[in-house]
């Protein structure tokens, strides 16, 4: 870390943090989509219900990821 000021470390932290938040959200939403596709294939009549549940769950996960992103943006702007 020689030669890296606080500012550089802040940018580094923001970048890594944003990446990790996106990684977590990607895994989570991917799991939801996989389960939803499986559920729809097994029971096509429930497609509408499954879709609604999927969107809500994806939105909630996305919310957590966005918290992470907002913190990263604040780190960069401060």
């Amino acid at each position: 870390m020689e030669g890296m000021g606080n500012e550089a470390l802040g940018y580094l932290g923001a970048g890594i943090g944003a990446g990790l938040a996106v990684l977590g959200a990607g895994i989570g939403i991917g799991n939801i989509a996989a389960s939803a596709a499986e559920g729809t294939a097994r029971n096509p009549e429930a497609t509408a219900d499954i879709r609604t549940t999927m969107i809500i769950a994806a939105a909630l996960i996305e919310g957590v990821a966005l918290f992470g992103e907002v913190i990263a943006v604040l780190l960069v702007l401060k």
Binding site: A59, L60, E62, G63, L66, F67, E69, V70
Partner: peptide, 13 residues
């Protein structure tokens, strides 16, 4: 707060 951040961050992003 989750509602606030979600809408704000999505539209800004």
């Amino acid at each position: 707060i989750a509602l606030t951040i979600r809408l704000f961050a999505n539209m800004t992003a």
